[in-house]
Design a protein around this nucleic acid. Structure first.
Lengths: 134, 134
DNA sequence: TCAAATAAGACTAATTTAGTCTAATATAAA
DNA sequence: TTTATATTAGACTAAATTAGTCTTATTTGA
């Protein structure tokens, strides 16, 4: 029904950690070891979060990552988009599917109610922030 | 983020059709052809719905399926459980995972907020019924 | 110069989801 | 009683998605 990807789980765990670390620099390795998250996978997640300005990074020795936003400014809808990409409830809802074409018959017309649900769930995700996880 | 499985899409399309058919008998073949849904796949979906008393079936020639509940009595949480099985947002939330053990460190503690979200989304799904799709 | 970190992308493995194939059973009607 | 048309059932295969690994480059403080 509704399932967070492992990546999202990892991102939430990491961001919770960053939020608790209170602006001090934390490395991917530390988080990877503490929560037993595969290092390379976590690295890529943190890199994405950096690209989307959720984190800032410092390269080289003594480097690492740090929060670039307040926990309450990081909402889950944004995170899901950043990490998993924008996924709609059905193909019809997908932003990739520009034409909005239904793979089935146009008669299917479950589009509107599904679209409505989609909105409600998005709203729910938008209201949740990292602050709710600290 | 939130994605309906194809099976759920098919189930919704079919149930909408049954609801519109107003107690007349409809065959799997008819629905399969009208909405271009693979016949065998649809058949199994309808069989599951029958097992869970959403539909009744009549075997043999002139057989088919018919709604066994009012559209407003068929909610989406029930449907998802019937068709996809009970899936939680993360492993921790899964009903299969009786112990509630986290695969990561117990420190991860994103459990509670995720569990809260899970409840909210379940509530949303429970409030939606086939009536919203007619 | 070296060690420890981020950055990036290709690749593989595992899991889940979707769809197919085969065969049995039921029943109305010719 | 045979036939055509349905549901029922379960094993199997294919496709797609997700998770994880491997390799290499770059940055930078000591």
């Amino acid at each position: 029904m509704v399932k967070l990807s492992k990546k999202m789980e990892y991102a939430l765990m990491a961001l919770k950690h960053f939020a608790a670390a209170n602006d001090s620099i934390v490395t991917a390795k530390e988080i990877s070891e503490k929560y037993k998250i595969p290092y390379e996978l976590l690295s890529k997640i943190l890199q994405k979060l950096k690209k989307d300005n959720v984190l800032t990074s410092i390269q080289g020795t003594k480097g690492g990552y740090r929060l670039n936003k307040k926990p309450e400014e990081i909402d889950l809808h944004f995170l899901v988009q950043s990490i998993d990409g924008d996924i709609g409830m059905t193909e019809c809802q997908c932003s990739e599917n520009k034409g909005g074409k239904c793979t089935h018959n146009d008669d299917c017309s479950i589009k509107e109610p599904v679209s409505q649900m989609q909105k409600e769930i998005e709203e729910l995700f938008r209201k949740k922030t990292i602050l709710d996880f600290v």
